[in-house]
């Protein structure tokens, strides 16, 4: 969102001394597209004296869905919370290593986690709509970040966000109803709409379907499939079938280590590591 604003303003567009805007070469544009969104080098997370993640090196693609799988307690959720610095809110948690987002270290002192979280949205395991109306839930982010100055702009943001989350048709006549009056699946899509409303670049999802029934899950997966066109999505899931359905890249975590990271197809059809094979065939985990 911020990056877009800067580009639009033209302030940071490369210009020749003559004032002519340099056109990005196609090669350069392509390089940007394949440049990873996140580069992680030797990421370690400590809870007190316990090391929960033992030096993760991993690049997250700019496009598509990256799934993090692994047995309970393997560190996949901890790793996910590294990307929007949610671990900062846990007392005693400490993160070391480099996490570069578009080449910028998000753990740098200059970075304000509050602003970072506007760029990296998150959806949690349990749907957590605020005790407010559906409208106010979606408008919450735009309001605190001052994204809309006029009532109409805010209405539009709310409507498009709900549309993108595939919830608009179900709730358009009851925007004043409390968010908690929706069903579990609707609540989870409301929460996604809430995250989309601040136009993040990345959406992190922490087992978003674990509290949903199969039909709501199917709808959610459909939604993820649509969202990946516009957002970089990282999803933690304990359902291997879900990882196989929605993701293009899959990372397998085990006991705080990144065991294997490859195209989803490779991970599920042709895993290189024995531990990965054991997990996806159901022998462990």
């Amino acid at each position: 969102m911020e990056a877009n604003a800067i580009q639009d303003s033209g302030l940071f567009r490369p210009v020749t001394p003559g004032g002519e805007v340099i056109k990005m070469s196609e090669k350069r544009a392509h390089a940007l597209a394949v440049e990873p969104k996140f580069k992680c080098r030797d990421v370690r997370v400590f809870y007190g004296a316990t090391e929960a993640l033992h030096g993760i090196d991993m690049d997250i693609e700019n496009t598509g869905v990256t799934a993090l799988i692994g047995p309970s307690g393997c560190g996949k959720s901890t790793f996910l919370r590294v990307f929007n610095r949610m671990n900062d809110t846990i007392p005693n948690a400490r993160v070391t290593g480099d996490i570069l987002m578009d080449g910028e270290n998000i753990y740098d002192k200059k970075i304000d986690p509050v602003l970072l979280r506007a760029r990296v949205g998150m959806v949690f395991q349990k749907p957590n709509p605020f005790p407010k109306s559906i409208y106010d839930n979606v408008a919450y982010g735009p309001r605190i970040h001052g994204l809309a100055t006029k009532k109409n702009d805010l209405n539009e943001i709310v409507e498009t966000s709900l549309q993108k989350a595939g919830l608009w048709n179900e709730v358009k006549d009851r925007l004043k109803d409390p968010g908690t009056s929706l069903s579990g699946g609707q609540q989870q899509r409301l929460v996604i709409a809430r995250a989309i409303a601040v136009s993040p670049e990345v959406i992190l999802m922490d087992e978003p379907a674990s509290a949903l029934d199969p039909i709501a899950t199917a709808k959610l997966e459909e939604l993820i499939d649509e969202l990946k066109e516009k957002f970089c999505i990282v999803i933690v899931t304990h359902s291997m079938a879900q990882a196989a359905r929605v993701s293009q890249k899959t990372a397998f975590f085990h006991l705080g280590d990144l065991v294997e990271y490859d195209d989803t197809e490779v991970i599920f059809k042709n895993p290189k590591d024995q531990r990965t094979q054991d997990y996806i065939t159901g022998r462990t985990g």
Binding site: M86, T89, V114, N128, F130, Y140, I144, R194, A195, V198
Partner: peptide, 24 residues
């Protein structure tokens, strides 16, 4: 989970307190 949801949207502590936790 409500606090986490608010922080994850880039809300500060005081915004989370006044707009989410207090009403709840």
């Amino acid at each position: 989970t409500l606090r986490d949801g608010s922080y994850a949207l880039g809300a500060t502590r005081s915004e989370t307190m006044t707009k989410v936790i207090f009403p709840a």
